[in-house]
Design a protein around this nucleic acid. Structure first.
Length: 423
DNA sequence: TATGCCGGGAA
DNA sequence: TTCCCGGCATA
């Protein structure tokens, strides 16, 4: 990745002209819009919360009552959903790591991430919301995402036929990847296989080594059968799946995880949850995708991140993001390397860094959202770009001077945009 | 370096 | 909500 561009010159010229001519007008509009939308969004969030909970309950009933072979169905759904996930991941990657631009990468990541999660990070895999909690590893490497991604990402694209680099332990995983990507899946685990049981509950990705353990987990944690934890009517069977881990692959996965995990934590985990929720809960799913329950949340949040997060300073605003992501991505198109100009724009570069860390932490529930939001949004700083160009006219400070600060407009006193001498 | 202003925090 | 201020971006 060598940027042979003479971005410096181009940047300077373009940035100066661009910022004033294009950005300014947009920024003004954005500000107005964002202000209005924020309030509206908050209200909507509450409604969404309620809706989600309802949907979840309904879904749960459906799953239980109807004899749907959840395990298989889920897997397929996950696989199918991978596309969505992939898309989300791509967006994320674009925003997060400037270096990695190839969309295809995501797919692999998603796959690799899934198995990795299963092996290395128990809870993270399927549960969008909770994975962050349970997996300490996620937090550990917030910043590292890009390197691993880039490496993985290119492989798939360049070589259509060749086998995917990241090893998948679970047969399911491999199959899924095949289905999704139409890539031949040569690899099958020859080595010792370790059987694990993975909780398929929407937000939960818990992996236990024993069926009894996973059943108990589901019964107590998800089904709320605390009292009769030992009693099993078989319902739990629907909520967990058996996964086979190859020791070797696991090792590989772990190694790869170390670097990758950060990025994955951001993107991949959410992916899983989304698929599950959307798949199984068809009816609600669509509405949920945006409303989402704890599970679904993760997905949406990630998306937000993708859009918003990256501008480095845009903390609270959702809408502004577009500028950041869109511009950057748009220019990338030609080659991985060509992006230089737009790409280097300050907002983008920074975004990735701040975002990822915060990202990991948030994984909670409602709080997560806010945290992620703020953090995420901050990057989008599309705002940054949106930031009003410095006023040319004289401001209170200049007019009255520090001595007469009393005469300043309140905004100036508060270090806000001057209201008296607007440009 | 000075200035303008965003984002956040405290009261 | 008001007030302040840290810190960043720009001139």
């Amino acid at each position: 990745m060598t940027f042979t561009f003479q971005p410096e010159d181009l940047k300077r010229d373009s940035s100066k002209k661009m910022s004033h001519q294009h950005l300014f007008p947009l920024a003004m509009e954005e500000d107005v819009k964002t202000a209005d939308t924020k309030k509206a969004n908050r209200a909507l969030d509450h409604e969404k919360e309620n809706t989600r909970s309802i949907c979840l309950l309904e879904q749960k009933r459906k799953v239980v009552s109807s004899n749907i072979d959840v395990p298989p169905a889920r897997k397929s759904s996950e696989e199918l959903d991978m596309d969505k996930v992939t898309a989300a991941m791509v967006l994320t990657s674009l925003s997060t790591s400037p270096l990695v631009r190839s969309p295809p990468v995501r797919p692999n990541e998603g796959l690799s991430g899934s198995w990795k999660e299963g092996g290395g990070v128990p809870s993270s895999s399927s549960s969008s919301g909770y994975w962050s909690w349970s997996a300490p590893s996620d937090q550990s490497n917030p910043s590292t995402p890009s390197p691993p991604l880039s490496a993985d990402s290119f492989k798939p694209f360049r070589s259509p036929a060749p086998p995917p680099p990241p090893p998948d332990d679970g047969i399911d995983e491999a199959e899924a990847s095949n289905l999704l990507f139409d890539e031949p899946i040569p690899r099958k685990r020859k080595n010792s296989m370790k059987v694990m049981f993975k909780c398929l509950w929407k937000n939960c990705g818990k992996v236990l080594s024993t069926a009894a353990g996973i059943q108990k987990h589901i019964r107590t944690i998800h089904l709320g059968r605390i009292g009769d934890s030992d009693y099993s009517d078989g319902e739990e069977d629907f909520y967990y799946t058996e996964i086979k881990l190859n020791t070797d692959s696991v090792a590989d996965g772990l190694s790869s995880l170390a670097p990758v995990s950060p990025s994955q934590s951001l993107a991949s985990p959410p992916t899983f949850p989304i698929p599950d929720s959307s798949r199984t809960e068809t009816p609600c799913a669509k509405t949920e995708t945006k409303l989402m329950t704890p599970l679904s949340r993760s997905a949406p949040t990630t998306l937000y991140l993708v859009h918003t997060d990256h501008a480095y300073q845009v903390t609270s605003e959702g809408p502004p993001r577009p500028p950041v992501t869109i511009p950057g991505s748009a220019k990338f198109t030609p080659n991985g390397s060509s992006f230089s100009i737009s790409w280097q724009s300050p907002p983008v570069t920074f975004t990735g860094i701040p975002v990822s860390p915060t990202h990991n932490h948030p994984v909670g529930t409602g709080e997560q959202r806010q945290h992620t939001h703020t953090v995420l949004s901050s990057p989008p700083r599309g705002t940054v770009s949106l930031r009003k160009p410095r006023g040319e006219g004289k401001k209170c400070r200049k007019v009255y001077g520090m001595e007469n600060r009393d005469l300043w407009c309140t905004a100036c006193r508060w270090k806000k945009a001057c209201q008296r001498f607007t440009d």
